[in-house]
Design a protein around this nucleic acid. Structure first.
Lengths: 320, 320
DNA sequence: CGTTGAATG
DNA sequence: CATTGAACG
């Protein structure tokens, strides 16, 4: 587009913006189109277990739930994919904004919703799980005070497995100021956490933003990025260690040679040029391999600097 | 508009916003349409005095120069009114943003520009004077350290008069936390400042946001607002004191019974309902009365929560 | 409600 | 470049 044209367009949009600044925020106060406001008086009923033998789980780093709801992108996604369980990371919701924006009104009633949020810095980090089946139990964070200030982890226990979502701390895009914390403290402790869950006799389905491109194929420029957050050897090694402790990277397991990314930097406008990284994963306990049917990267879904990922299980395939 | 319709519209605009977020900011980096980038090598020449005997001066609280330029509203105003001198208040420009946004590129080259800005809190308060005639001298602030941290005042000395612009401190819209400072310190010291200018033998043209509705006619609900910032008896008394010290409220002088406002709260959406206040004034030394031709409130000009005001002098009418 | 800058990614 | 909350009016 020519500069001239862009300028004319800019003026046009600015004209609009003047009449409608932050309408999305305003709209967000009433339920999204076609949705019914929950009635606090009557508690919503959710099934005790998944209706079908096929279970479909998605995970999406939404880069701010407020914005993605204001643009109707989350609603569209749910309508189109209707996952049984949806993990959300980087929701950037504070306890206040969850209430004030009435976030719950924009999510279909068939979902039972759990929110975790940063207790320290408001509007930072945060995670959520939306599920059609009422979990037997919900665990917030890791149970380690040092890691539990930013609402990064949320766990739902179901009949046959755990679903864990996590938003792994970024090492720091400028000076890697949080690199040591991430690599030496968070990663090992988080791995211990999911290993401990397994000890209860149920496999783990972990979906989230692991903030690392595991192998060379998962990064668009492995050499040039080796000192950038998410692409350092130490971070990548830690992911290998995770798999070595008995877990499977579902997408890589089913598609050993496919290069597909889940994140593209907005700073560099990388989604246009395709220069991204695979930072979001569904990682599962080895014992679930026989049930794994599908693992996808939904790279066409827009609305965030990450795209959603998806995994499908067939629970009947197990030997029981 | 129905809720349904508004919702559909919101979605449409959100779609646009996704493609073009902050384009105005982006555009602001290159000169506005039809304007030429100043060449730092060759200093711009400005006339030494006003070309015509008629001098037209405007003042506008722009509520953020960045935004009003991004929407092209300041450029449109200048194009339509082309004042000889334009006072701007609440520019909210920091020293960095003046450079980074290349603000100067969006103002016609025929204007010589002077910027004052808050040294304390960035992006707060601030004032500017744009003039077609090169001033003999420019005075920043009042020369009183306690008042000089927020870039509220700017003075240009011309051959026959001073032009002073000021953005009087708001008393605090919630708890009047700055009421005492405003009423007991700023107002008296500011009045002393312009009285001192007069001692140099030149009259003063003061244009700016005085942050007070002087008389009942200048406020839409005098009783209900008597405890609100800008409408307290003390603030209104101080304006009377200013006039008692030898100054004229130009608009009221020429239009004794016209109720016209210059400000409407965005919080209450008051511009639609007409519930505003006259907070912006051109106040002049008594000796200039014979030259005063016109004083207007340009209430149709949009782009800020204030509208511009205007005053016109005929310099030939004086006895010299 | 609308503007600004700060922090973060 | 895009998101969030804070301060202010």
């Amino acid at each position: 587009m020519s500069t001239r044209k862009r300028k004319a367009k800019a003026q046009y949009f600015d004209e609009k913006k003047r009449n409608k600044k932050n309408r999305s925020f305003e709209e967000a106060k009433e339920p999204s189109k076609g949705l019914i406001e929950p009635n606090p008086a009557e508690e919503q009923k959710y099934p005790q277990d998944f209706c079908s033998s096929t279970v479909h789980i998605c995970s999406w780093n939404v880069n701010g739930l407020k914005a993605i709801i204001g643009r109707n992108d989350l609603q569209s996604f749910i309508k189109e994919y209707s996952p049984d369980v949806l993990c959300l990371t980087e929701t950037k919701l504070s306890e206040e904004s969850i209430k004030k924006l009435k976030i719950r009104h924009h999510i279909p009633l068939e979902y039972d919703c759990y929110w975790n949020f940063s207790k320290k810095r408001k509007g930072y980090s945060g995670s959520a799980i939306l599920t059609k089946v009422k979990p037997l139990n919900v665990i917030y964070d890791l149970g380690i005070p040092n890691h539990d200030q930013e609402g990064r982890t949320l766990t739902c226990e179901f009949e046959k497995f755990y679903v864990v979502t996590t938003y792994v701390p970024n090492s720091g895009i400028n000076k890697l100021e949080r690199f040591d914390y991430r690599v030496k403290e968070w990663d090992p402790d988080f791995q211990d956490f999911i290993k401990n869950l397994e000890k209860n006799g149920k496999p783990v389905v972990l979906g989230g933003d692991m903030n690392v491109g595991h192998q060379e194929i998962d990064v668009h420029n492995p050499k040039g990025q080796s000192k950038s957050a998410g692409f350092t050897p130490q971070e990548r090694d830690n992911f290998t260690k995770l798999l070595d402790r008995g877990f499977i990277d579902t997408f890589r397991y089913l598609h050993p040679k496919v290069q597909q990314f889940t994140f593209w930097s907005t700073i560099t406008g990388a989604r246009k040029t395709g220069k991204g990284g695979r930072l979001d994963y569904f990682v599962i306990s080895k014992s679930l391999i026989e049930n794994l049917e599908k693992a996808e990267i939904l790279h066409k879904v827009m609305g965030s600097d990450h795209c959603p990922i998806s995994v499908t299980f067939n629970l009947e395939k197990s030997g029981e």
